[in-house]
């Protein structure tokens, strides 16, 4: 596996913030909100986090893989995505859409 890209598997992310807090470069930004979900037969609703946005700033990322290691739900993974070359520094900020694993698109 090439260590050339860190991909986000959106469905697995629970917005627990662990990757954001452990990142030594502070290059991950995550926004989420909480909703009440009532399961059938449950007595009271449970709180569920919904991921609003997830961004990795690849101009800062040092590909250390700490975020991949700490993710308890394997929502982040090494990926053989294309190497990232841009003409704008802002284009290095990748959101949920661009972070999808290479097999999915």
């Amino acid at each position: 596996m090439k260590h050339s890209f860190i991909a986000l598997i959106e469905d697995k992310c629970t917005s627990c913030m662990l990757c954001v807090r452990e990142c030594p470069a502070w290059c991950i930004h995550l926004d989420s909100h909480t909703v009440d979900v009532t399961d059938e037969g449950a007595r009271r609703p449970k709180k569920v986090n919904v991921l609003d946005s997830f961004e990795i700033d690849y101009s800062l990322c040092m590909y250390c893989g700490v975020c991949i290691d700490v993710c308890p739900f394997d929502a982040l993974a090494w990926d053989e995505h294309r190497a990232l070359v841009t003409t704008n520094r802002e284009d290095m900020l990748l959101g949920i859409e661009e972070l999808g694993p290479s097999g999915s698109s």
């Binding site: 090439k2 050339s4 990322c61 590909y63 990232l84 070359v85 003409t87 520094r89």
Partner: peptide, 10 residues
Amino acid sequence: STYVAGCPPR
């Protein structure tokens, strides 16, 4: 003109 991401870039 160009930014190349990576630490180091491949």
